[in-house]
Amino acid sequence: MVGKDDILKIAKLAKLSVDESKIDELTKDMGEIIEFANTINTAVTNVESEDFDEINNIVNAFHQDEIAESYDRELILKNREGGLDGYFFVKRRSEK
C-alpha cells in the first residue's frame, strides 16, 4: 500500500518538488502502478526462466572470439568530464 510518506520520500530521492495539493492524486496513481506491476506474479507461475527463450527459439546468441578495435579513450571518458590522467576519477568524499 502506497502512502503519502512514500511519495514524499521518492520525491526527495528523485530531487523533485511536489505540490502539496497533488500528493493525494500521486498516491492514488502510484498505488495503481504498483498494483499493475503485481499482476506479473500471477503470470509466471510454474514457468522456468529459460522457457521464455523458447517463445522465440532464441538460444546461444554468441559473439566470436575476434578482437575489434576499442574506443578512443577520450570518447570513453567523455561522460566523466575527461577523467584524470586517463582514469575515471572519483574524488574523496568530504569529511562533513
Partner: peptide, 16 residues
Amino acid sequence: CSCTTEFGGEPNTHCC
C-alpha cells in the same frame, strides 16, 4: 564485447 583482454595497456584503452 570484442575488446581485447590483453594484460596491461594504457588505462581505459581496452574499453567500449
